[in-house]
Design a protein around this nucleic acid. Structure first.
Lengths: 226, 226
DNA sequence: CGTTTACCATACGGGTGAGTATGGATTGAC
DNA sequence: GTCAATCCATACTCACCCGTATGGTAAACG
């Protein structure tokens, strides 16, 4: 068996690679490519992280169901032979991509909000920032529609649980008694999730910018005590 | 070509059949079956509506992606030969099922709510009834996760639009000025949609009955003016 | 009672996508 | 430069599922 070692964790591990979960272009602009301006995408060697990023990119655009290895390979300019060197199976890619997303996609906002001194200003600031960075929540919205998939359920459970706890303490710090703070967090988070669903794939709240801002302010006035 | 006539609208149309969108058992307890208690499901002839109901049943349980004709046939105790007599293609079944759901699943609640005399009592009543009949919204929750499917988008757009308008007028009748009523309706509907997502497939708000009722009352107190 | 019509089974063709086998090409170590 | 490790291409198998073709059976009608 001269088969290469496509282990679960993949051979490439450790090292000072840049971990910032950039789901931008297909390839991460390789290290030393020949800088050709031809139509073909730049060629270099791929790593497992490249596949994970491409997978997250595809999930954000077309959902978990569209995650096919041959489609990904075409998009990356290679064939399946490359994929099955880095990953054992399609599920392992999904797991790795989800794990990666959970790790590096968490403290985008929460850590920034926690630095705000006045607790009463945190929630309005959180609402406004989330509303103006909806694009970064496309993976979450796509995963929300794939909750029938057994692999995404635990990830989403953990992420939603953490966000819910953050919201609950924020509402407590804003002056609500504990029981009300928990329910208000549930309501707020449900409104957030529902808005993602209704806004992305369905384009239901067909509203322009200023109307959207007015909606956000209405949310703030309705949900945040003060 | 001795091929039978599987037209779009299907041959069976009109007639005093019971239209109540019952997504209960696999077969609708046929007209004159032999009432056997054997393990095999009761045998009779199937109609297009039986297939549509079974399709909605399957969609509610496993999502739109799991709607396969052979799986449905197995579940109904027949083979594909039966299906392709009633329907021309798989898409036509989906369209028929969605159309059926849109028609008969609409005025379950709205018509009942409209009969309430006092407008200020309508919204709390609506909230409580919807909260205690979540099971009938499983199809809507499943369709919500299939918004990348082109066939479900127009249906969901129409249904959501109607419900949004109903909510908007209800909030106006409850005393809110028009602009605020619209935004409050958006917020309320987003909370409804998000709760469906977080509750069904993800079991996130792991709360018992009295805690759930408390949450509903919190929603009423927070979102409904007065 | 026989014939037509409605409904279903069986068997097949075709397309898609996951996973495997294996050899070739590229890179880095020495 | 050589050799081994790493990465990728090609070709294949297998399973699943849509749709078709066609013959069979039970119900409806005369």
């Amino acid at each position: 068996m001269p088969a290469p070692p496509p282990e679960g964790g993949s051979p490439a591990q450790g090292g000072p690679t840049d971990h910032t979960l950039q789901i931008t272009n297909q390839r991460g602009y390789g290290y030393h490519t020949q800088m050709n301006v031809s139509s073909k995408p730049e060629r270099s060697r791929l790593s497992a992280e490249d596949w994970e990023n491409a997978a997250l990119h595809l999930i954000a655009e077309q959902g978990v169901g569209a995650l096919a290895v041959e489609a990904l390979a075409r998009q990356l300019g290679v064939t399946k032979g490359s994929f099955y060197w880095h990953f054992r199976t399609r599920e392992s890619l999904l797991n790795a991509a989800l794990e990666r997303w959970e790790r590096y996609g968490e403290r985008e906002i929460i850590s920034q909000i926690e630095e705000i001194a006045d607790p009463r200003e945190r929630l309005p600031e959180l609402f406004r920032r989330v509303a103006h960075e909806l694009q970064s929540h496309r993976v979450y919205a796509a995963l929300l529609k794939a909750l029938d998939h057994p692999q995404v359920v635990p990830v989403m459970a953990r992420v939603s649980q953490r966000r819910m706890e953050f919201l609950t303490t924020a509402f407590r710090e804003a002056g609500l008694p504990p029981a009300q703070a928990l329910n208000r967090a549930r309501l707020t988070y449900a409104a957030y999730v529902g808005f993602l669903q209704l806004n992305f794939t369905l384009g239901l709240p067909r509203i322009n910018h200023e109307e959207f801002d007015a909606y956000i302010e209405h949310m703030i006035a309705t949900l945040i005590p003060g």
